[in-house]
Amino acid sequence: MQCEKCNGKAVITLQHGSLCKPHFITYFEEKVFKTINKFRLIDRKDKICIAASGGKDSLTVLYLTKKYLDHYHIPSEHLFALCVDEGIANYRQHTIIDLQEFCKEHKIPLKVITSQEEFGAPLDEAYPKINKDTKKKPCNVCGVFRRYILNKYARQEGATKVITGHNLDDEAQAIMMNMFKANTTLAGRLGPISGIHEQDGFVQRVKPLYKCTEKEVRLYTLLKGFKIDYTECPYSQLGFRHKVQVMLNDFEKDFRGTKQGIIKSYLAMLPLLKQHDQQTNDSIKSCKTCQEPSNKEICNACEMKEVLAQ
């Protein structure tokens, strides 16, 4: 297969044609920059916290955010990385080593917070206890841990934005998961900028890889030579998300453009969903125990802390 732009050897076939290595890298980086500009994900005055795990998505978003800041002459001393070590044996410790090396090489300050120090237990110990009480799956517990720690420590460090490595596949899965579970209250909280509106204590989360597929991200890291451990999370196949992921990839193979179609449809509906959510959910307040943003009196993280303390 030849590149549609230069007749060089193609490395990927996209919906609109095939691209060689240099043209794919340009296409990918331009797409990320355009996403940041179109949705105004970064402001010159922002202090940016990048949620980083050392996986392909977070290293890509770290690298390209730094490149974006340099390109637009935005001071990059306003940038730092925050890693949540959930405490998953034989998994996270490998990616953290890659992350530490990457941050050192690119001169990005890194802060690592463990579930052990915040919740009193690593995920491997916390999950069975919480599951016994609540039947929550490991990905649910992990998600609560991560969101809580990210928001709390990003805010403590004075961040005005949290950048995450969520890609097009992650988003398409989340949209379908909300649909399947009739999570209408959460439906308006996805998109390139998470959340409905500004809220005390909540640091806005933004997604520069919003329009990049998982396959494109992996290819980009491979072509750029990023050192990444590709061990899969041992819990990932237990979750609802995994089933949706397999389904969407099967659809994508047979009907190219399925995932992009989901994103395009969602973005067209998003203003209405946000409006609906604002009208029906004006009750987002602070948790009575920890004062972190919550739509319940006691947030999920504090509920889990309580179970773990028993």
């Binding site: 998994y91 491979l222 590709y230 999370c233």
Partner: peptide, 8 residues
């Protein structure tokens, strides 16, 4: 054969 899916 390299897996595209990583993490969890």
């Amino acid at each position: 054969i390299l897996s595209v899916v990583s993490g969890g």
